[in-house]
Design a protein around this nucleic acid. Structure first.
Lengths: 228, 228
DNA sequence: TCATAGTGGTTCGTATACGATTTCGTACTT
DNA sequence: AAGTACGAAATCGTATACGAACCACTATGA
């Protein structure tokens, strides 16, 4: 139930049961892109690779299935979830809702220090635009949004946000195209969001802004996908 | 990932793997209240009871854990999740958000027949108030809301709504107190919601109304909990 | 050429067995 | 009498083993 971070450390975490280790390891590989969508996850192979037996690995896979990161077919096996545009739409739409709520709930708890940190991150993102560094941009984007919703007092909602981000991360490595025009707009929207929060704006207003921010990204993707 | 209904048929479903059967069976018992919060779920005992070995049962329990219905402690065991007021608040708050979104997304797809059905259910609920039939009232309440969000085109959101309802159902059997005053208000809010949908009101307006409806239930619980 | 039945190999599904960890009761010491 | 240490029972965690389902391929017949 509890998620620790948007992206966990890659590779092996020492803690916990083997089942937990397997979960972390496979999840990390999916999120970071070592296992691309469509990749066939064979229990025996992964078990051998990690040095465990199949049972904990199986449990890990089922957990990942519940989070939508892998697709499991009975008596056939598991594959890393694909990038069906429809799925992408569903995920983004859901994320826009839970993230909007998380941000709105967090807003009153965001302090000046947080704002400053977020603003610094956002400025770094702006620099990434100049030097065209999409990888770094994406990572900073995560950091920025983490600041916005990390104070969310409702752990359930926070968990849903994390799941959404993980799901996107697994897709991003293969499909997502960095669109400079959209990225620039994104940075501006970030600044606008910060100003709303600074001004202690209405929760509803903040929620709407956060939603729009994500919807805009979705729209950019859709129109691009249409033309390509 | 896919949920079939708010409450599934109790007892044994014939279909699927043993793991799936175990999941359905245990879930049903939790939701219907045979296993109350705090109940100790011993793998071996359940396995023996169902006639399976422990492995599929274990998998079922982990799945239920991911949905928040049970709490699992390493090397100790699983118990049916309790009714911490804080947890209740978190669940209701999350549900108000996802349910609001689901209802708003469904609204344009709700036809006259659906409205009529919902209205009939709501009138039945009103009758339950006269004859004081809380059990039936609760069941009808589920039916009513199902009509509202069942057309939600985003399966992820729908899934979250179902999970929330299941979670509440498991709590309700032990903690929830039927508050006639609140129930009466609830029926009126239902009617208001229907009129909004009938009038093809703004999605945002419908969403807000759906949220308020749930928040009001939460508030009623909180103020009651405080006085008792 | 195409449809179909058979066959081998791959992979999952579950049972059983054993080791690891925790819990709880009991006896002993202070 | 209270606290602690120890040991036994209960329970989970994982490995291994075997059976079942599925898939791809080939051979056979129309």
């Amino acid at each position: 139930m509890t998620e620790t971070a948007v992206t966990d450390l890659p590779g092996l975490t020492t803690a916990g049961s083997k089942s937990e280790q397997a979960y972390q390891a496979v999840k990390a590989r999916i999120v970071e892109g070592s296992y691309s969508p469509g990749y066939r996850l064979v229990l025996a192979a992964i078990a051998k690779d990690l040095g465990f037996s199949v049972v904990p690995v199986r449990e890990a896979i089922r957990r990942l299935e519940a989070e939508g990161l892998v697709k499991f077919e009975r008596n056939v096996g598991a594959t890393v979830s694909g990038i069906d545009p429809t799925e992408y739409l569903y995920t983004m739409q859901t994320l826009s809702i839970v993230e909007g709520a998380a941000t709105a709930l967090s807003a009153p708890l965001i302090g000046e220090a947080d704002i400053a940190r977020a603003r610094a991150v956002n400025e770094e993102m702006r620099e990434c635009l100049e030097h065209f560094d999409p990888v770094r941009f994406t990572r900073l984007n995560q950091d920025f949004h983490s600041v916005l919703f990390e104070h969310c007092p409702n752990p359930h909602i926070l968990d849903l946000v994390h799941r959404g981000w993980n799901r996107l991360a697994s897709l991003r490595s293969s499909t997502f195209r960095f669109v400079p025009g959209r990225a620039r707009a994104s940075v501006d929207e970030h600044e606008a969001l910060l100003q709303l929060i600074e001004a202690s704006a209405d929760a509803d207003e903040i929620e709407k802004a956060a939603r729009r921010h994500r919807s805009a990204t979705l729209d950019a993707y859709l129109s691009q996908a249409k033309t390509v």
